[in-house]
Structures are given as structure tokens and as C-alpha cells.
């Protein structure tokens, strides 16, 4: 009997944690988008106001990111500093590929960044400023949709985890 109780409690705890983990993804995605927007706005200042060379601009801006996007920016800086034989677009796409299957990065952000990589650094300040405005707007839309998704699904996964645990425990009894 005691074993049954203990195992049921364990099952409930595990399922709840699974539910929490699933719901946390939604929060993490929002945080990632917010950080990304922050980095891009720093990058915009460096480029548009100070004309900093792209490698230095990315290095300076990437200090403001901690989450899943950090390795992406670090990779680009490292690649551009060491391997001048690759184009920026190639380096950008290659670094981005590491995030393709990251559960905290949605396909939508991935594609937005993919397109942005083709435009960054390749034109004058006025156009660069426009590209930055565009990507900020696109990311804002994604941030809002991520918030809606969190409202909808985060609670659901959380409850689902606990209910699943309880369900299994009841069947065991």
C-alpha cells in the first residue's frame, strides 16, 4: 500500500513537472523575442548612429543577450573575425541553423531572422534603419502572438500535467 502511495505521488510530481516544462516554453519564447528585440535595437544604434563596423557592432550588442540567441551572435562574431572568406549571409545562415530545432525559438522568428541576415550591413544607413524598423515590427507581432499562445496553452499544459499524473495514479489504484 505504502509503495503504491509513494509511486502515485512520484507519478503525479513527474507529470506536473512535465506540464510545467511544456508551459514554460511559452514564457521562454517571449523572453527570447524580447531579448532579440533589445539586441537588435542596440545593433541599430551602433550601425545607424555610430557607423560601427558590423563585427564590432554585433560584439558590443551581444552583451545584452543571455538566452537561446546568445550562441548565435557569438558564433557570427567569431566566424567574421576569423574567416573572411565567407560572406555574411553564409555565416548568418550557418549560425542560425543551430536554432532551427530549438523548442524555444519559433519558426516565425527563425524565418524573420533568416531574411534579415540577407539585408544586414549590405546597404546605406537609411536603408539599414528601415530594415531595423521592419524587423522590430515583425518581432513585435510575434511577441504578441507568443503572449496570446501563452495565455491559451501555458495554463492548459500546466493543468494537463497534473491531471495526467492524477489520472495515471487513479488507474494504478
Amino acid at each position: 500500500m505504502l509503495i503504491k502511495i509513494i509511486s502515485s505521488v512520484l507519478i503525479i510530481i513527474c507529470c506536473s513537472l512535465l506540464g510545467i516544462h511544456m508551459s514554460y516554453r511559452y514564457t521562454q519564447r517571449i523572453n527570447n523575442i524580447r531579448e532579440l528585440r533589445n539586441v537588435l535595437s542596440h545593433l541599430e544604434t551602433e550601425i545607424v548612429n555610430y557607423s560601427t563596423l558590423l563585427v564590432h557592432a554585433i560584439r558590443n550588442s551581444s552583451k545584452y543577450v543571455k538566452g537561446d540567441w546568445k550562441p548565435f551572435f557569438d558564433n557570427i562574431v567569431e566566424a567574421l573575425e576569423n574567416r573572411m572568406e565567407y560572406s555574411l549571409a553564409e555565416v548568418w545562415q550557418e549560425s542560425l541553423r543551430a536554432l532551427e530545432h530549438n523548442p524555444n525559438v519559433d519558426k516565425a522568428e527563425y524565418e524573420i531572422m533568416q531574411r534579415f541576415g540577407l539585408q544586414l550591413g549590405s546597404s546605406d544607413k537609411v536603408s539599414q534603419e528601415k530594415y531595423f524598423q521592419l524587423i522590430q515590427e515583425q518581432l513585435k507581432v510575434e511577441e504578441n502572438s507568443a503572449r496570446e499562445a501563452r495565455l491559451k496553452y501555458s495554463r492548459m499544459y500546466y493543468n494537463l500535467g497534473i491531471l495526467l499524473g492524477l489520472g495515471i495514479a487513479i488507474i494504478l489504484f
Partner: peptide, 17 residues
């Protein structure tokens, strides 16, 4: 020519306007 422009501007055409 696209690559040369990228290389001489260090990937930063905006800085060499």
C-alpha cells in the same frame, strides 16, 4: 563584385557611405 564590396567594407557598407 558583391563579395569584394563586402570585404573592402568589412561587411559594413553603411560605414563607408
Amino acid at each position: 563584385t558583391r563579395r569584394i564590396l563586402e570585404l573592402i567594407s568589412h561587411y559594413s557598407i553603411y560605414a563607408f557611405e
